[in-house]
Amino acid sequence: MSDKQHPLLAIRGLKKQFGATEVLKGVDLDLNKGDVVSIIGSSGSGKTTLLRCVNLLEEYQGGEIALDGETIGYRSGDGRRRRLSDRELSRQRAMTGMVFQSFNLFPHLTAAGNVMLGLRKVLKLPKAEARAIAENWLARVGLAARADHYPSQLSGGQQQRVAIARALAMNPKLVLLDEVTSALDPELVQEVLNTVKGIADDGATLLIVTHEMRFARDVSSRVVFMEQGRIAEDGPPAQIFGAPKNARLAEFLRTTRH
């Protein structure tokens, strides 16, 4: 399904600054349905900020993001550009799922409660239906037996898998994964990566920021290298890792390979 006129996600000339610091200097990126795209690059290159702009957690000063054909975040008319209302932003955020580096589970809710909150409040599903969907997703991430545990009773890897279930249960068009294994103990990394691999194999569209190069190579259909707020190279994993054209990318890969 590579309809070039209508990619699932189309980012055009995205510019973002924090005060005087320009973090994104004009980013263009397309994702088609079912794509798994990993963004790699050193810290401060703007990877995470890019994800946060797509999920409208950050405001951006220039450029445009379209999700499934709908321009999100801003409305422009008579030469002015205005941030959409909270209600509109919330509706558009529900179309993407986000998994955070630090899990960010709701500490006052059980694993099932975490997954159910969006189903109940945003999708307005009845309780029994929301519970059934939550149990189904918790089972898919291997946590059926932990549905009624609170986050504080779960390991980091389990918490992150609940966070993945929470994002996927909303049936988003696109899932954003922001360094989802960076806060985990080494022995817990693999269970989370396997879970992500599973949802990728099921056909979810994923935009992944990661430092796990082997994982990016295994799971991605495309890899994007970001450098100082720009996309410096964009290609299939074999090209990015095997025959990098960009000198900074080659340097980056040398320093991260261990």
Partner: peptide, 26 residues
Amino acid sequence: PKGVIEAARAIGLTRLQTNVSVVAPI
């Protein structure tokens, strides 16, 4: 935690829903 509020916003809760269902209980 700010991240927990962002997680609520990320699944599409409005500001009011976030305050009632997430911020207030914590």
